[in-house]
Amino acid sequence: MHEMGIVLHLAKTLDDLAEEQHISKIGSVTLRVGEVSGIMTDLFVDAWNYFKVKHPVLAESELKLESEPAVTICDACGKTYETIRYGKICPFCGSEETWLLQGNGCVISEIEAECEEESE
C-alpha cells in the first residue's frame, strides 16, 4: 500500500513535469531508491506497471531502479559506516550517537523523454 502511494505521487510529479517541459512521451524513469527507504522494489515495479497505463505520457515507460547505499555517521568519533551492516551502533567506537547520512530517500535521477517538436 505504501508503494502504491509513492507510485501515485511519482506519476503526478511526472505528469506535471511533462506539461511544464512539453514532453509528449516518457521512455524510461530512473529512480534512486535508498537502501533503508522501506520501499519494496518488486512491489514498486508491479504498482508502476499497473498505474502507468492511466497516464498517456507514461503508458509505455519503463521504470529503472538504482539502489542508493545507506550510510551512517557517528557523532562521537566522526567516522561513517554501512548502515545495513552495523545498524544504529557505531562499529568503531560503540557509540549510539549516530545519524543516517543517506539511504532513506527516493529521488527521480533522470528520465528519457520525447518532446512535442521531435515527435511531429
Binding site: 513535469l17 527521480i108 533522470e110 528520465i111 528519457e112 521531435e118
Partner: peptide, 13 residues
C-alpha cells in the same frame, strides 16, 4: 529521445 537529468523528489508535485 533525450535524457533529462532531474534529481527531483518523487513527491515533488
Amino acid at each position: 529521445m533525450k535524457v533529462i537529468e532531474l534529481n527531483r523528489s518523487v513527491t515533488d508535485s
